[in-house]
């Protein structure tokens, strides 16, 4: 709330309508559903990467997508903020309802959508700029120029991403000077700075060592108080540790979607059981 109040004070850009729309997120999603995916099909040219996906992703929880390589889990994640638009050959059918709107509709303001839905990538990919400029990037693109506003927003984002104590004395240093785990937390901070409602994470720890991984996992657990998190992971133990619900994909099909406890303890589909018990993958 402190952050929202500050947004309100910043006269440059924020208007009251921004705040109302952000606060009404819960009202727009009365069932606590962040995404309602309906009959989603995705093709790369002739290849069908996603087949009739139907699922509801809950608000303020962690949803994990698991499955072997090429199962479509990352593709589905990239549908949620329309990043698949960047792949020329991709074609999407079906609906993804978010806040009462179909985000696949041509009327969607994709740029605005992506400020509301943050994304963290597989490889830490900070910009070759200072730590401060990385964290402030999204806000600067939004047109925020007020230095003290940016400083506060950067500090708050870095605190939330559990990076502030490590970098507060050298915010001007290039982000390349950070370790891989710090870089990935900076990428999380960069997304948080925009005060999104949802954070998408595409295998965020696959390039990190075990200690950095466990710090990111702790962070995910903290962040779910405030954000809806969707995480793609290759690590089943990670899905079991951090997620509330888990979806298992295979060759573009959603095989099973249930609470994480049920998926890992009482899977209904034998293919799910085979995958989580390590028979293939």
């Amino acid at each position: 709330m402190k952050f929202m109040n500050r947004l309100k004070q910043n006269k440059d850009i924020s208007t009251d309508s921004d705040i109302i729309s952000a606060q009404s997120a819960l009202v727009d999603n009365p069932d606590g559903v962040a995404f309602d995916i309906r009959d989603l099909n995705l093709y790369y040219d002739d290849f069908q990467a996603l087949k009739d996906i139907n699922m509801e992703i809950k608000d303020r929880s962690v949803t994990a997508f698991i499955g072997p390589s090429g199962c479509g889990k990352s593709t589905l994640l990239r549908c949620l903020n329309r990043m698949n638009d960047l792949i020329e050959s991709s074609r999407v059918e079906g609906e993804i309802i978010h806040k009462g709107q179909n985000i696949n509709s041509p009327d969607t303001d994709v740029v605005k959508l992506r400020t509301e839905i943050g994304m963290v990538f597989q490889q830490p990919n900070p910009f070759p700029k200072s730590i401060f400029d990385n964290a402030a990037y999204g806000l600067v693109c939004q047109g925020h120029k007020n230095k003290s506003f940016l400083r506060e927003a950067v500090e708050e984002a870095l605190i939330k991403a559990a990076l502030w104590d490590e970098v507060k004395d050298h915010l001007k240093r290039n982000a390349d000077s950070l370790s891989g785990g710090q870089q990935q937390r900076l990428c999380i901070a960069r997304a948080i700075a925009l005060n999104p409602e949802i954070i998408l994470m595409d295998e965020p720890t696959s390039a990190l060592d075990p200690i950095a991984t466990s710090r990111i996992e702790d962070l995910i657990t903290q962040l779910k108080q405030e954000y809806t998190i969707v995480i793609v992971t290759h690590s089943m133990s990670q899905a079991a540790r951090v997620s509330d619900e888990t979806a298992f994909f295979l060759l573009g099909d959603l095989i099973e979607f249930d609470t994480t406890d049920n998926i890992f303890q009482n899977p209904r589909d034998s293919r799910t059981e085979d995958y989580i018990s390590g028979k293939f993958g």
């Binding site: 903020n81 990043m83 960047l86 740029v111 605005k112 959508l113 992506r114 400020t115 943050g118 994304m119 990538f121 490889q123 990919n125 900070p126 910009f127 070759p128 990037y137 999204g138 693109c141 939004q142 990428c187 960069r190 997304a191 925009l194």
Partner: peptide, 17 residues
Amino acid sequence: PLTLDSASLALGATKME
């Protein structure tokens, strides 16, 4: 790296930005 373009676009930057 194109991953930097992706990062920027995912933060709500336009292509020109």
